[in-house]
Design a binder for these strands. Structure first.
Length: 501
RNA sequence: GGCCCCAUCGUCUAGCCAGGCCUAGGACAUCGGGUUUUCAUCCCGGUAACAGGGGUUCAAAUCCCCUUGGGGUCACCA
């Protein structure tokens, strides 16, 4: 019976820590995560830091932070451990020399002593002759014993894999059958002159030793795949199944880079995009479920994800869609969560002193309640609530227009100020308590023969400096009686300044 | 340039594998309208696509070929 037990599903996300966690990388991580969770498998994180020049600790940290922000916790990997460590490729490198030895001993690889200059020259020649850019196998002529002797004698050289004749067929889970003729491949270097192994070799070893069952990665790796399959076969490894997901393209087409938009997950985290919005957005780039559902929680994605539904063509990055999702989830989160997210930003903006956080919480919650369906990511909250903390020193265009347009708005406001002061008691100005303000304004407008808009719009302009805010009376209730009356008392000045009457 | 991958509204896509149910569906964006103290939400409606050409078939968005277009990749980088 035991032979019927299907092999465990193990996938990995294997970023190289150069720079930041790219949005495309995050999506690759998501697809791996989803696939693992869906099938009860294991999601492994492996850091491919073999490029010592370009790898940085900050970049490694950015990967951890980015994945955690998105909620894609790995089952095995750095800071987590597991039975297949170490999870930094740099720490794994030494263990591959025995594989190199094996290839050498079996005649599947050979030492190459060609100088870089010769290689460059060769390449130039081939380019000029419009030939395939391939190593010419000069060192294949060196007898193995002779090569060993020279190697032991200290002559610098690399080890090349001898690509056999024939073709390799990849049954890609997304792309279907991909056939590559071996003559298109050159004898790739597997071990450098300094004794370290090259990426294409290291992955094969790592994936094998980590018992990776499915390799889900970007399409840019598709051309690496035949090399890795060949290497794996030469070593007698069980080769994993492959799934190459389409790339994310920049808006006008072409590779997405920092020129086009923020491409680092860290940036989006900083801007305060809700992770569930990010996840939903990422998932829908290149994957779809049916013709009905666009909104998915992580849990639903786990349930509904499948590689067959990943599309083959590249997806263009569309910030507007992200923003739409951002706004969508903003309306769904418990307001308390939103307050937690907003508070630090308000402190940083200087609106709230850090020691006042606890005291201000209730008021911020009311603001958040009003603003939540007007923002797409949390950083936008700062500008939206500025007028609660700072007297509006300038008016936006809309507000200016309102004040200029209404002929006797200034006197209306003065009458309103006196009236509201007398008619609406202090305790009807608390956050959330705006019914009395509302009723009073309607009454006054009726008495003056004005529409509510005639009264409310100039009021809003004076009170907030804006022509667009949440419901005026809700806003006023949060602002408080004293602040409102103070701002209204200066209405004349403001009118004079903008040229209204 | 060689090789590989891809091709439905502006964008993400459903439909294609198992050809008729497609006068091609949804979402974002956009444009109108409604609700509203403004904005946003919400609701209603509109514009908008099978890249082109050949086949196969009674029938093709769906299958095949070519062209065109786009992307990727060709390192002692990962």
């Amino acid at each position: 019976m035991t032979e019927n037990v299907p092999p465990a599903i193990r996938v990995r996300f294997a970023p190289s820590p150069t720079g930041y966690l790219h949005i495309g990388g995050a999506r690759t991580a998501l697809f791996n995560y989803l696939f693992a969770r869906k099938h009860g498998g294991t999601f492994v994180l492996r850091i491919e830091d073999t490029d010592r020049q370009r790898s940085t600790p900050q970049a490694i940290q950015a990967i951890f932070d980015g994945l955690r922000y998105l909620g894609l916790e790995w089952d095995e990997g750095p800071e987590k451990g597991g039975a297949h460590g170490p999870y930094f490729q740099s720490e794994r490198l030494p263990r591959y020399s025995r594989y190199v030895e094996r290839l050498l001993a079996e005649g599947k690889a050979y030492r190459c002593f060609c100088a870089k200059e010769r290689l460059a020259e060769l390449r130039q020649r081939q380019e000029a002759a419009k030939e395939r850019l391939h190593y010419d196998r000069l060192c294949l002529k060196v007898a193995p014993a002779e090569a060993e002797r020279r190697h032991r004698g200290g002559e610098p050289g690399v080890v090349r894999f001898k690509v056999p004749e024939g073709q390799t067929v990849i049954e890609d889970m997304i792309r279907g059958r991909v056939v590559v003729e071996h003559r298109e491949l050159e004898d790739l270097i597997v071990q450098r002159a300094d004794g370290t192994c090259v990426y294409n070799f290291a992955v094969v070893g790592d994936d094998h030793e980590m018992e990776i069952s499915h390799v889900i990665r970007g399409e840019d790796h598709l051309s690496n795949t035949p090399k890795q399959v060949l290497l794996g076969q030469a070593l007698g490894f069980q080769v994993p199944r492959y799934a190459h997901i389409p790339l994310i393209l920049a808006h006008g087409g072409g590779k997405l880079s920092k020129r086009h938009a923020a491409v680092s997950v860290t940036d989006y985290q900083r801007m305060g995009y809700l992770p569930e919005a990010m996840i939903n957005f990422l998932a829908r780039m290149g994957w779809s479920y049916d013709d009905k559902q666009e909104i998915f929680t992580l849990e639903e994605l786990i349930e509904k994800f499948s590689l067959e539904k990943v599309s083959k063509s590249g997806a263009m990055y569309d910030l507007k869609k992200l923003n739409h999702l951002g706004a969508h989830y903003m309306r769904r989160r418990p307001v308390g969560d939103l307050v937690d997210l907003a508070l630090p930003l308000l402190v940083r903006a200087g609106f709230i002193a850090s020691e006042d956080i606890a005291r201000e919480r209730g008021r911020v919650e009311k603001m958040m309640d009003l603003e939540r369906d007007r923002i797409e990511f949390m950083e936008q909250i700062v500008e939206r609530v500025r007028y609660y903390y700072q007297e509006p020193s300038t008016l936006d265009d809309g507000a200016t227009k309102v004040l200029r347009k209404k002929p006797d708005a200034a006197t209306v406001i003065e009458r309103y100020a006196a009236s509201v002061d007398a008619a609406v008691p202090e305790d009807a100005w608390r956050p959330g308590e705006h019914a009395a303000l509302d009723a009073h304004a309607r009454e006054l407008a009726a008495k003056e023969g004005l529409s509510l808009a005639d009264l409310a719009q100039p009021l809003r302009a004076i009170l907030t400096g804006r022509s667009a805010t949440p419901g005026l009376f809700e806003v006023m209730a949060i602002l408080g009686k004293a602040t409102c009356l103070r701002r209204l008392a200066r209405a004349r000045e403001v009118f004079a300044r903008v040229g209204g009457t």
